[in-house]
Each structure stands twice: as structure tokens, then as C-alpha cells.
């Protein structure tokens, strides 16, 4: 076994992500992360893009600081986990990168762990910060982001990390002039699932992405029978009611009202979160709201890390108070 990547040098390889013919933002965030580590480690940056029409993304991916764009031609444009697994494995073998960065996205979760397992790579997921200082380090959350862990990869010549979206700035597309190289890989027959169709989310009665004021409820409300009370409160308060995922999973709220990674991304003027812990997938959908107010009994709830105003209090007692205040004002 080696001592890992202590001397620096070599290459950092980014695996770009596309969906239904569009480049996803996370790809250019990964470029920023790669550039930062490569600078500290004296390494080069290569970006690979996989798909039937991969060459069309080469120009956009050629951001400043990218040395090479590798285009890999795949049998289909649609992501297929086993095709990506074979392609990324082959790229690791041919390009010998020291670090491979992919997004902590639904697609990457579908293939990256299998690549790391089979190739015996250094590996960590949901990484919020990557650094190099005589060795590679990654920072990630623990216990639902109430703690942060630093992890190392001492015995690995190559490490694969999945990086959380929104942690690095989006590099300016097409701002550099890297070499573009087509990599021929044999991917025929690699697929083990068959794409049937995409289905878009049904509209629902209201569009929470248009609301200026969202009153958002989480698992802290605890009881289905309490939900109508929050709808009344929202009506009184001039707010639109939205929620975190568990209430949708339980069938207490329609899926059109879900805020977060697998729901809607909202940017209201005011987001009032009652009994929502602030899991990363929830924050992904609301962290850019102009004003965030959070009420939670747990002073360590991660939601307070993004809120502008917070109160450590029982949401029901606060709601009693809001109802009183609104009645007095009317």
C-alpha cells in the first residue's frame, strides 16, 4: 500500500452531469472545487462528460483553469448507472487521476459507490469541502449536520468524492480554452436497466414557487389533525402553506407543497419554518429565501445555521401567540 497522495501532482478528474440534454449546475461547481484542490496540489484539471452527444458540452465545460475536456460517447444520452460505472472505471484506468469529483446527486449516488467499491478507491460522500495540504482531506456532516467530520484517505492513490451541491461557486462556463479530446470506450452492453420514460411532477392547486410568504411546517407538528390549523393560520397571515418531506410522505400534505431537493426550490421574501430540522435536502430548496425565520425546540437544529431569525420554542405556543397577535391587529 502507498501513503496516498502526499506529494501532489497528477490530475483531478471531474465527472460532469447532464440531464435531458442540459448541463447541470453542479458540474461547474465541481470545476471550482477541482481548481482549488489542483492549485494547492500542483495538479491538472480534466473534466469528462459522458453521453450520446457529449461533444456539445465541451465548450461550456472548458472553464478557466480546466486543462482538458474529455468527451466520452455513450449509447444513450440518458444516464444509466452501469454504463456510467463502466465509463468512469475506464477513465480512472486510462487517465490515472489522483482525485475524482462527482456531484452528490441522485445520478451519482446510483453509480459512484459501486466504482469506489470495485476499484478499491479512497471514498467519501456528501463532502462539503475538499482540501489538500500534504494529503487529501474532506469535510462532511455527521448526525444530520449537527457535527462535522474531517476524513483522510491515507492508503489510496486515487480517491473518489461526491460533493454536495451548492457548496462551491459555479465556474464561468466557457471561460477557458482547454484541449478537447474524445475518449473512445467500449460501453456497448454495459446497461443493465432499461429506460422506460420520464414523468414530470403534477402541478397541484398552488404554485409555491410564486408565493412571497411561505409558512412551512415540518415533522414537529406531529399530528395529521393539526394540519388544518396551520392552513387557517396561513390564510389569516397572508401566507401560502408548504412543508418538509415527511408530511408529504405520510400523505398529510400534497406533493406540490413540498420544499426541497426532491420537491420545489422556493425563494420567497419570507420563509417561516415551524418544526423543520433543516436537513440538507430541505435547505437545498429554501436557503436563498430573502428572510428565513425558524422556530424549533432544539437549539442545535441545523435550520438555525441558515435562518436570519430564530426562536428556540415550542411551535404550538408560538402559533397560539401569532393567532392572538393577528386577531388583535384585525
Amino acid at each position: 500500500m502507498s501513503n496516498g497522495w502526499v506529494d501532489g501532482g497528477g490530475a483531478v478528474l471531474v465527472i460532469a452531469e447532464t440531464r435531458r440534454g442540459e448541463l447541470r449546475d453542479v458540474s461547474l461547481e465541481l470545476v471550482s472545487a477541482a481548481r482549488e484542490v489542483a492549485q494547492a496540489a500542483g495538479a491538472t484539471v480534466a473534466v469528462a462528460v459522458i453521453g450520446a452527444d457529449s461533444a456539445k458540452f465541451a465548450q461550456a465545460l472548458g472553464a478557466e483553469g480546466v486543462d482538458q475536456v474529455l468527451t466520452v460517447s455513450a449509447p444513450s444520452d440518458n444516464f444509466e448507472a452501469h454504463v456510467w460505472q463502466r465509463a468512469v472505471t475506464a477513465l480512472i484506468e486510462s487517465e490515472q487521476p489522483r482525485l475524482v469529483l462527482v456531484g452528490h446527486t441522485i445520478d451519482s449516488l446510483g453509480f459512484a459507490p459501486a466504482v469506489a467499491a470495485r476499484q478499491g478507491l479512497g471514498f467519501a460522500t456528501d463532502v462539503v469541502k475538499v482540501s489538500f495540504d500534504g494529503g487529501l482531506r474532506a469535510r462532511r456532516g455527521a448526525y444530520g449536520d449537527k457535527l462535522q467530520a474531517e476524513v483522510e484517505f491515507p492508503d489510496h492513490d486515487c480517491t473518489l468524492l461526491t460533493v454536495r451541491a451548492g457548496m462551491y461557486p459555479v465556474a464561468a462556463a466557457g471561460s477557458g480554452s482547454p484541449a478537447v479530446r474524445a475518449v473512445e470506450l467500449d460501453l456497448a452492453g454495459a446497461a443493465r436497466t432499461e429506460h422506460v420514460e420520464f414523468r414530470d411532477v403534477a402541478g397541484g392547486d398552488v404554485d409555491i414557487t410564486k408565493a412571497e410568504f411561505l409558512l412551512s411546517i415540518g415533522r414537529g407538528v406531529e399530528d395529521k389533525d393539526e394540519v388544518p390549523r396551520f392552513q387557517e393560520l396561513a390564510d389569516q397571515f397572508g401566507a401560502t402553506l408548504s412543508s418538509s418531506r415527511p408530511l408529504v410522505d405520510a400523505g398529510w400534505m400534497p406533493s406540490s407543497r413540498q420544499v426541497g431537493q426532491s420537491g420545489k426550490t422556493v425563494k420567497p421574501r419570507v420563509y417561516l419554518a415551524l418544526g423543520i430540522s433543516g436537513a440538507v435536502q430541505h435547505l437545498a430548496g429554501m436557503r436563498t429565501a430573502d428572510t428565513i425565520i425558524a422556530v424549533n425546540t432544539d437549539p442545535e437544529a441545523p435550520i438555525f445555521g441558515v435562518a436570519h431569525f430564530g426562536a428556540v420554542a415550542d411551535l404550538f405556543e408560538v402559533v397560539d401567540g401569532i393567532e392572538k397577535a393577528l386577531e388583535q391587529a384585525s
Binding site: I106, T193, E194, H195, V196, E197, R199, V201, S255, S262
Partner: peptide
């Protein structure tokens, strides 16, 4: 498969 934004991809395996 549940993708970001609630989009669904149906696949067979």
C-alpha cells in the same frame, strides 16, 4: 427513480 425536483424516471431491471 426519484430525481431532483420530483421528476421520475421509470426503469426496468
Amino acid at each position: 427513480r426519484e430525481l431532483e425536483g420530483g421528476v421520475i424516471e421509470v426503469v426496468k431491471v
